[in-house]
């Protein structure tokens, strides 16, 4: 029974497999060109955007979709669900993502981080009403976002070309491949598939998307109004934010500033 299901799942995941395969070969190339040093040294970020014109078109498409569809939905979400409720949704989503976060912490060799994921999942599931309340977080065991893109980075794989993904927004070959691997490997997905409830999985993906967009809407509005070339500002923000996540937000490496003594 399980076998046929597994085969069916693999069939269903064929597109993701092809994507992962094709993307892995790109990663190999990306890893060859990656440097061991930090990209944000001396205040410059290394931007590799050979498909810029194409990316700009998708960026404009995403902006149009945002204005027409996403913004009204997020506004509706904000109107219907007050802030504590939205925080509950976020906590819940983070909690059910624990297996993926745990696997990535282990793959990155971050054992204290992996231990925190387990502690958080146990505490929040039991005391935090199934993950709605971040009890562990208020006790000092903070949530740390991890994904396979970050794991690849820890393994020394470079970003590869920057890419703007339709509907999803800024990414890179590495990070998009990581996203595909995380989605494919998520045990929750396998479980829900096995009990014929894959619909729940897609509802979760939708909710995750809504949560992400809700958390970003103000930041992006702010960035748009404070920048001249919004595309370039988003791209620079993406690279820096990913870099901070890979370093687990270690403030040790803020971008350096020259002294400009000749003013």
């Amino acid at each position: 029974m399980f076998n046929t299901k597994a085969v069916a799942l693999l069939e269903g995941g064929k597109t993701s497999i092809i994507l992962v395969m094709s993307v892995l070969s790109c990663l190999f190339l990306a890893s060859c060109s990656s440097t061991a040093e930090h990209p944000i040294m001396a205040g410059d970020i290394i931007i590799d955007d050979p498909l810029e014109n194409h990316n700009r078109r998708i960026f404009a498409f995403n902006a149009a979709v945002d204005n027409a569809v996403i913004h009204p939905i997020v506004e509706g979400y904000r109107a219907v669900v007050p802030s504590p409720g939205r925080t509950g949704v976020r906590n819940f989503l983070r909690n059910i993502k624990s297996p993926v976060t745990f696997a990535n912490q282990v793959l990155q060799g971050d054992l204290p981080g992996a231990k925190d994921v387990v502690l958080r999942a146990v505490i929040n599931s039991l005391v935090g009403l199934g993950g709605l309340f971040d009890v562990a977080g208020s006790e000092g065991i903070e949530y740390e976002p991890e994904d396979f893109g970050q794991t690849l980075a820890v393994w020394g794989v470079g970003h590869g070309p920057y890419m703007v993904v339709p509907f999803l927004g800024p990414s890179s070959i590495r990070d998009y491949a990581g996203y595909a691997v995380d989605s494919f490997a998520d045990p929750l997905r396998w479980y829900l598939h096995n009990i014929d409830e894959e619909g729940i999985y897609y509802a979760k993906v939708g909710l995750e998307y809504l949560d992400l967009r809700e958390s970003l809407i103000d930041v992006l509005e702010d960035l748009e109004s404070s920048s001249i070339d919004y595309y370039a500002a988003v791209r620079a923000t993406y690279y820096q934010r990913r870099d901070a996540l890979i370093r687990d937000e270690d403030p040790e490496s803020a971008p350096a500033f020259p002294s400009y003594d000749d003013f």
Binding site: D229, D243, A244, E249, F257
Partner: peptide
């Protein structure tokens, strides 16, 4: 001389924005 919010430097972002405007 710089404000870094959640790992994102205001000055680096601005520099990247300006460089793109000038390059284009």
């Amino acid at each position: 001389i710089d404000v870094i919010v959640a790992g994102v430097s205001m000055s680096v972002t601005q520099r990247s924005d300006f460089a793109s405007v000038i390059q284009r």
